[in-house]
Design a protein around this nucleic acid. Structure first.
Lengths: 155, 155
DNA sequence: CACTGTTTAATTGTGTACAACTGAAAATCC
DNA sequence: GGATTTTCAGTTGTACACAATTAAACAGTG
């Protein structure tokens, strides 16, 4: 195959990063009508996933899992709290830490969420094994990006 | 709250959408220090890519290319304008339309941007052919997500 | 031509993202 | 034990995203 030697490679359609950015937003948009019925945004749903999976979780641990900082999580958690889905309390063992816990309503919401991932996966029309491959590749890239960012800091 | 082992697929790590969301943010973060030197954010860089490639472009066409609406583009373009990189003017042929054009400074910035995509791709450490595969898979998913969203509207 | 409906940008309001900073609490060092 | 440093959550400010609305301009029809 002949390859046109583009001096620049500033072609939008060739860029993986744009494909990633567009795909992420398109998939989030697919979640939106479903999550609307639960009264959740997509990032709020991610926080609920962690809480459903692990129970009581500190803001710090949520941030590590979701790769979000307190600047994003603090207001988000406030909204979940005023929606009656979670409570927040300082950890008596370490007063710096704030532990987020599910309320009964937050726990009940889990049942309504069970079908969501499969429904979304099917809506894409991409076979499950291909999605799993994609997910693994994305993880590799995410790790590499984090590693590259670390590198720059230490120079 | 007590937690129950999940029979369901509400596992964060299994979700393609989260992998996508995390990867998109991680890659954007990799662009950030590079784009900072050009005085651009990542979405602004995307707009500039389109303008470098196609020249004068309407807000509508930018929105179609980047899958962004005027609610995002209008303030973004204002910032590019006040940075002296673009100008905006109503199309005399169709007064509804606003055409965005590069200034001389905006055009010059292109040279400084030429090396960016390759540098980012290399920083991920993922081989180019694998990245191309990934990009194609992402496009398929994006298209499927848009199609699925369309479906819902017509029901 | 008037009427209807559509297209296009812009605006408003809500909710992320993220950098930079603050203050309190804990860990570390001497 | 006291000083220094680090950790943690929250706040502030900037910049997206996106739904919903508005207003102007255009297109098509009777």
């Amino acid at each position: 195959m002949t390859r046109v030697p583009d001096e620049t490679d500033l072609d939008l359609r060739k860029q993986v990063c744009f494909a990633l950015y567009a795909a992420s937003r398109a998939l989030t948009a697919l979640y939106r009508p479903v999550l609307d019925r639960l009264g959740l945004t997509y990032p709020q749903y991610l926080v609920m996933l962690v809480l459903w999976e692990r129970g009581d979780t500190s803001v710090k641990a949520l941030g590590t899992s979701l790769e979000l900082d307190s600047g994003t999580l603090s207001p988000l958690l406030k909204r979940l709290e005023s929606a009656g889905l979670v409570t927040r309390a300082r950890d008596p063992r370490d007063e710096r830490s704030v532990v987020v816990s599910l309320t009964a309503a937050g726990d009940r919401l889990r049942e309504q969420a069970t079908g969501i991932p499969r429904a979304i996966a099917e809506a894409t029309g991409v076979p499950a094994d291909k999605l799993a491959d994609l997910r693994d590749t994305l993880r590799i890239i995410t790790q590499a990006a984090h590693a590259a960012a670390e590198d720059k800091e230490t120079t």
